[in-house]
Every structure is written in C-alpha cells, then in structure tokens.
Write a protein that binds this DNA or RNA. Structure first.
Length: 357
DNA sequence: TCTGGGGTCCTAGGACCC
DNA sequence: TCTGGGGTCCTAGGACCC
C-alpha cells in the first residue's frame, strides 16, 4: 500500500446484446429490439436477455418473461441470443480496456472494473481518461458504454448505472455518502430481491436508511451479511480489482419446450448435455472429479444431486454413466420435469494429473 | 409476471480421520 | 457402558451476479 487514494472505473456497455445486433443490422435502429427466448406469439417460454431503449419505453425489461414482453410490445424485432458473436465482440472490448488499467477485472460479458490509480492524478484527469476510453470503444467497435468513477468498486459500479446510456459519472470520496443515501438498497452489490424484501420489512428502503440503522441489530438479523451491509451502505468497500482465476465449474441446462414425463427423452437430453459439457471440459484440458445433475419439476421446485468420484477423469463415458445414476431418484417420482442440467466441477488440469500418475 | 442459462460464493450438517 | 475436539471434505440448497 502506497497510501495513495484508489481511483476505480466501472465500464458497462449499453444494452450490449441489442447494440451488437443493431451494429450488424442498421435497419433495426430506431425500432424496439429484444434479444431473448422465442416469443412464439406470446406462448414462448424463457425471458428477455436484453432490450434496447426503444423497447424499454414499452415497459420491457431484461429478465422479464418473454410472454409478457410480447403482450407489451408485439411489434418489436425479436432475436435469439447469439452468444458466440457477443463473446467475440466482448473479447475485443476487454482487450481495449485492459490496456488502460493497472489492475483489470472482467465482470460478466459486458462489464469490467479498472484500477487506474497510478495512471491519473485526481478526478479531473480520471475524467479525461474515461472520455478517452469511451472514444476508443466508439471508434473501434461502434458501441457506447457508461463509465462510473469512484474510490472503490462498489461506488464505481453504482455510478456507471447512474447515467445511461453513454454516461460518465464521477463520485469523489467526500461525496460518497451523499450520493448513495437517496438510492434504493437494491442498487447495492449483493442486495438482490430477497435481501431487499427482508430489509423492507424492518423499514429500510434507501441506502441512507440502511446507513443510519443500528449495526448491532443488522448483525443480529443478517449475521455476517449484516456487518457487510453496514459497510456497503457507508460506501466502504476494500475489495481489490483482480483478474478472474480459472473457472471452477462447467455446466449446461435446458428447459424443455413442454414439461415432460417421457423419461427416455429426459435421459437422451442428459446424454446430449453431457456431450456438450465434455466438449468444453476437453477444450480447456481439464479433468474433473465431481458430477452434479439438476432437475426442476413443473412447479419450479428445483433439486441438485451430486457425486464426487473416487478418481479423476476426463472421459465422456464416466460423465454419462454418473449422470444416469444420479438422475434415477428423480425419475422414479411420477412428476413432470421442466428442466434438466449437468455440471462438472472439482477440476484438476490434465498436466497436473499426468504428474500425479 | 409465471419465471433462461451461465456462473460464483456461502452455509449448515454430516462423514471420516487422527 | 454412551462419548472430545480439530480439521477437512462432501453434499444440498440458496442468494447473488450478468
């Protein structure tokens, strides 16, 4: 620690999936565009992945059931998720961003944290640098992003969301509490729907409410999380910007078009998912030890059943056999199944595996 | 509202070993 | 003969992220 105050950027691409689609097909521009599940005239399953700002005017949001989006905006352009394309564009953008940072952390497919402490002196210079970054992404990729600048990751992340699209928001350390206080607690990292509801029940709605709440009571109610919440509410976050480590699990899930009790079909699907998972695992040169099966019944009740093998393997046969064993308990019950999934974890790199033998 | 698919991390209980 | 304590690994579920 050199004692210098940190300056952290959070860069968030604007409605990334639809922006990439519009770049490929300029004729979509100006129309509502929705990337996600097939709406099937309002009968489709699945959700909205991303929608552009024209679609948002109709009340469409990401995460919303696609059937609801159809009711709100049937005239939108509906597109399937072209994940490979977005990943390719993402790699290019991350390559640009990485150059600007002392420390870099990708966060999902279209966001990143940058620690630029050594590259700038003070907030004015930081702002200039952020403009430069936005300019380079626009020139090279034809895409806009929103940038938040703050003394830590938490504040930078909330700041990038403050003005969108094509925004730039700077929050100086001395202004952090004032900036956060009026915002909903849901804006805090790690406060999702469940925690928001629990906080609401004890009268906490805004980050300011949370900051003023008795910390001991929070700890009593939420345990370790309560202590953490208290710090977050005051804008305190000491976590470092750090490069992501190796992946820890690889999985494939699929929701059936209709709930099914055709167990032959379920087993066939699991075989196919196992193949896809195995392909990914092989590409990365991993061996795995743990196999987990996921089953969701028609009422959305979801179970996982896993097993750690007494040996390390990279063979498809071992995966498929274990998956079949694990899913048996779920098939015996006479219930319709909505989703199945296969996951492998507990990796050992093939290199290391060779050394052990 | 009728709820995807890819991940990470945390917790709590139990098995097992010394 | 009724029962310790620490460490580590495993399992299932759940909350959260994009």
């Amino acid at each position: 620690m050199n004692g210098k105050k940190r300056i952290i950027f959070h860069v968030d691409m604007d409605h990334f999936f639809t922006a990439v689609e519009e770049r490929q097909r300029p004729e979509f521009k100006g129309n509502p565009v929705i990337v996600g599940a097939d709406p099937k005239e309002g009968k489709g399953r699945g959700v909205v992945s991303t929608c552009n700002y024209e679609a948002r005017k109709f009340g469409v949001e990401s995460g919303m059931p696609i059937s609801r989006a159809w009711k709100l905006c049937p005239e939108a352009v509906y597109l399937p998720v072209n994940y490979e394309l977005y990943k390719k564009v993402s790699r290019e953008i991350m390559g640009i961003l990485r150059k600007y940072a002392d420390k870099f952390e990708q966060w999902g497919i279209d966001e990143a944290f940058l620690d630029v402490t050594s590259r700038v002196n003070g907030c004015e210079e930081a702002e200039v640098l952020a403009h430069q970054i936005k300019m380079e992404i626009l020139e090279k990729e034809g895409l806009t992003c929103s940038v938040g600048i703050g003394p830590n990751k938490l504040v930078a992340k909330i700041a990038s969301d403050f003005q969108k699209p094509d925004g730039l928001t700077v929050v100086k350390e001395e202004d952090v509490e004032k900036f956060l206080a009026p915002l909903r607690v849901r804006k805090l990292l790690w406060v999702g729907r469940k925690t928001e509801q629990k906080l609401k029940r004890i009268g906490i709605n805004t980050i300011g409410d949370l900051a003023n709440y008795d910390p001991t009571v929070l700890t009593e109610n939420f345990g370790v999380m309560g202590t953490q919440l208290c710090l977050l509410a005051h804008g305190i976050d000491r976590s470092e910007v750090e490069e992501r480590g190796e992946v820890k699990s690889i999985s494939r899930d699929i929701t059936f078009e209709e709930d099914t009790d055709d167990f032959e079909f379920v087993l066939k699907t699991l075989d196919r998912l196992s193949e896809e998972v195995h392909k990914d695992v092989s590409k990365q040169n991993f061996c795995f030890k743990t196999v987990t099966v996921k089953v969701r019944y028609e009422n959305f009740e979801t179970h996982t059943h896993g097993k750690t093998l007494p040996f390390v393997t990279d063979r498809l046969q071992d995966l498929q056999k274990t998956v079949k064993e694990l899913v048996q308990d779920y098939l015996r019950l006479n219930r319709k199944i909505r989703l199945v999934g296969v996951r492998v974890s507990n990796f050992v790199s093939a290199e290391k595996q060779k050394r052990l033998i």
